[in-house]
């Protein structure tokens, strides 16, 4: 089987900022409940977050949403700085975090231009009523270590294993392999897939939108991180000049 290279496309034109992806991510990946104090202290853990920006002045104000998760950069700045190889690049193009190797120097978080790496300041806690909904495939992270979006690597692993055992082909865009955020997105603003497969939806979108007049762009390209997440510009019909 050909080596996969996972990637994501975020179509900003379709994103309505509903935050379903945030909730889905929270429950799939055993992220502790974020209390008010966490927001006050700026210590929220959201592997995917929807950033909201206001544009224009009063009567003509527009909200713009941009979901930001780990960009799984090919040239990830967080990887070389980790002294213990907790942050490394696997052969499927994923930037993965090894929780039990992490010692919590937080160097990776400093060196991430996208601010998608999170530190466990406190021990993770859930109310008793929620303890049974924890995902058994995902580690509950102890305090003192970094964590971040994994593109739901547990789903990728399980589906690949199942496919091998049961002998079926993994369908492009199958719910079994899509990350929780993609599955939960009701406007299909998030598209996940194998970029090494030329037939996949994501490859076709990339081929179309990465051209010169396409809508595709990478976040903060000037850092030279070559991310695997492609953003598609919002189409603004009210004015012709583009902005992002």
């Amino acid at each position: 089987m050909k080596q996969s290279k996972w990637g994501m496309v975020v179509d900003l034109d379709k994103c309505n900022g509903c935050q379903a992806c945030v909730v889905a991510c929270q429950s799939e990946n055993n992220i502790p409940l974020q209390k008010k104090s966490d927001y006050d202290e700026n210590r929220v853990i959201q592997w995917i977050r929807v950033e909201r920006y206001w544009e224009g002045s009063f009567p003509d104000v527009k909200a713009k949403f941009i979901p930001i998760m780990c960009q799984h950069c090919d040239e990830a700045p967080c990887e070389p700085v980790c002294p213990v190889y907790a942050s490394y690049h696997n052969n499927e193009g994923l930037n993965v975090q090894v929780y039990n190797r992490c010692i919590g120097t937080r160097f990776c978080a400093n060196n991430c231009p996208y601010q998608v790496r999170f530190f466990n300041f406190w021990e993770a806690e859930w109310p008793d009523s929620l303890k049974n909904q924890l995902n058994p495939d995902v580690t509950v992270r102890s305090r003192g270590i970094m964590e971040k979006c994994t593109f739901c690597v547990q789903k990728i692993r399980r589906t690949k294993r199942d496919a091998k055992v049961n002998g079926f082909e993994i369908e492009d865009g199958a719910r079994e392999i899509n990350p929780a955020c993609v599955n939960s997105c009701n406007t299909e603003a998030l598209i996940f897939g194998d970029m090494n497969n030329p037939e996949s939806k994501i490859s076709r979108i990339k081929a179309k939108e990465e051209k010169k007049d396409g809508r595709g762009y990478h976040l903060m390209e000037h850092y030279g991180t070559s991310p695997n997440v492609l953003y598609l510009k919002k189409v603004d019909n009210s004015k012709k000049s583009h902005s992002h």
Binding site: P77, H222, Y223, G224
Partner: peptide
């Protein structure tokens, strides 16, 4: 060299 930004390369 460590920075590896496009302009630096």
């Amino acid at each position: 060299w460590y920075g590896k930004k496009p302009n630096e390369r």
